[in-house]
């Protein structure tokens, strides 16, 4: 079994682990670091549930190997809230019923985290395009779009 030692930062914390080279980054986060907030739906890059932020950009963690994240700085859904205080995007999802079963939610949150940083005042069409790569099988898209709009306003108001 081919293994490598890797070192990376996740949600501000440094980790050093030895990983099998074929282990995806998503499985590594869930199994080795026990950060099970990152969800796996399709495991081939279509559903977006496993979206995380790697070196500042939203990526599919099921389409990366953990060994490729050696030296990287990651943000997962566990890193959004500050203690008990939810991130404004999380608050907006809560307030606007932007989740039903919640399985897809971490991917939507991490996608929006990057999208709203790059485009702080998006139109609804831009929001829908940005969210096109995340599937919600409860089909709660209307409220997810509402939550995204509200999140943009909250972020603008707090200057984040």
């Amino acid at each position: 079994m081919s293994e490598r030692a890797i070192r990376l930062k996740v949600n501000g914390r440094e980790y050093q682990r030895t990983v099998e080279v074929r282990k995806t980054l998503a499985d590594f986060l869930r199994e080795d670091l026990e950060l099970t907030g990152t969800h796996l739906g399709c495991e081939h890059g279509v559903c977006g549930a496993c979206t995380i932020v790697m070196d500042g950009e939203a990526v599919r963690s099921c389409l990366l190997f953990a060994v490729q994240a050696d030296g990287a700085d990651l943000l997962t859904v566990e890193g959004l809230a500050e203690g008990e205080a939810l991130h404004p995007i999380q608050e907006a999802f809560w307030e606007h019923h932007g989740l039903q079963c919640g399985f897809c939610t971490p991917g939507f949150l991490m996608t929006l985290y990057c999208f709203l940083r790059d485009r702080p005042r998006p139109s609804e069409a831009e929001i829908r395009e940005a969210l096109a790569g995340n599937l919600c099988r409860c089909t709660g898209y209307q409220n997810i779009v509402l939550a995204a709009k509200a999140a943009a306003e909250k972020l603008a108001a707090t200057g984040r």
Partner: peptide, 9 residues
Amino acid sequence: VGHFQIRNR
């Protein structure tokens, strides 16, 4: 081409 998360990689 794909979605922006795909184009990031």
